[in-house]
Computed example of a mutant assay.
Amino acid sequence: MTYLGGPGDDRAKGSGDGPQAVAPEIADAVESLADLWSLAAQGAVLRLSLHQLRALRALEVAPGLNLTGLAERLDIGLPTASRLCDRLEAAGLLERALHPHKRREVRLSLTAHGRHVLGDVADRRAQALGVALAGMEPAERDALSRGLRAFLGTRTGRAPLPGDATSGK
């Protein structure tokens, strides 16, 4: 059976570098990067799980979130978020404080130690990534940088992924 394809389908033109042909290579690269990211984080001052790191990062980006806001950002349930915060608070990485105007709301924020741990993880990840990038030719690094900027541009809402709420699929 011959594949006829539709307009804009690179397979129909016989191209080996169309989106569907390149996607598995990129998926492999992302998996390798995730492994590098995780290994670099494990060498940090304090070993944290991926969920714990994501929670700290969410609080770094949006200080003062409440438990519901954190759970939504992490796409986890409230009981799970509460237990996660309990562990982070016990480790001295986050603190809870009553909202100044809403008596029933508790705000979450990083402690100085939490910010230090995140900084250590970021430094270790940057070092590991630097080592990986040093093995590339300058033109390859430049092409990678341009490609990542283009990818990030598509993720700002111009090209939703299949299954995204905004994609209609």
Rank of each mutant, 00 (worst) to 15 (best):
H99R: 03
A165C: 06
T68V: 08
D75Y: 09
R149H: 07
A55L: 06
G163W: 09
V121F: 01
R103V: 11
A71G: 08
G18E: 10
F151T: 05
M136D: 01
L84T: 00
T156D: 08
R47G: 13
A134V: 00
L56T: 00
R57Y: 04
H116S: 05
A97Y: 07
L78D: 10
F151N: 00
A23K: 04
T2C: 14
P162E: 01
D86E: 15
I76Q: 02
G43N: 14
G8A: 08
F151G: 04
A91W: 05
A62N: 11
R107W: 07
I26S: 01
R141N: 07
T166G: 12
C85N: 15
L39C: 09
R96Y: 03
L88S: 07
L144N: 06
R146C: 02
L98E: 10
D17M: 04
V22Q: 13
L110I: 10
A134W: 01
A139Q: 10
K13H: 14
L59V: 12
S167K: 10
P24D: 08
Y3K: 06
H51E: 13
R146Q: 09
R87M: 11
A122G: 05
G14S: 13
H116D: 05
W37A: 11
A128S: 11
L84S: 01
K169V: 11
D120G: 03
R124G: 01
G77D: 13
A143L: 09
I76E: 00
S167I: 09
P19Q: 14
M1S: 14
A40E: 04
L59A: 10
A132T: 09
L50G: 13
I76A: 04
Q127M: 07
G135L: 04
G5H: 08
G14K: 05
G6I: 15
G168T: 02
G119W: 00
V117Q: 07
K102I: 15
Q52F: 01
P24S: 06
R87Q: 13
A126K: 01
G147F: 01
S15N: 15
L36G: 03
E72F: 08
R124V: 02
L36H: 00
V131L: 03
A62P: 03
I76D: 00
V30Y: 05
E137C: 11
E31P: 01
A40Q: 05
E89W: 02
H113N: 11
A112S: 04
L148P: 00
E60V: 12
G18T: 04
V30K: 03
R149N: 04
E72G: 09
T2W: 14
S32T: 10
A150I: 10
D86Q: 15
V30M: 05
A112M: 04
S15W: 15
P162C: 03
G147R: 04
L33R: 15
F151L: 14
S82C: 12
E89A: 11
T154N: 01
R11A: 12
G153Y: 01
D35H: 10
P160W: 02
G16R: 15
S15M: 15
A165D: 11
L161Y: 09
L59T: 12
G5Y: 07
D120H: 09
L93I: 08
V106L: 07
R54D: 09
R149Y: 03
H116I: 03
H51T: 12
S145D: 07
G163K: 05
P24F: 02
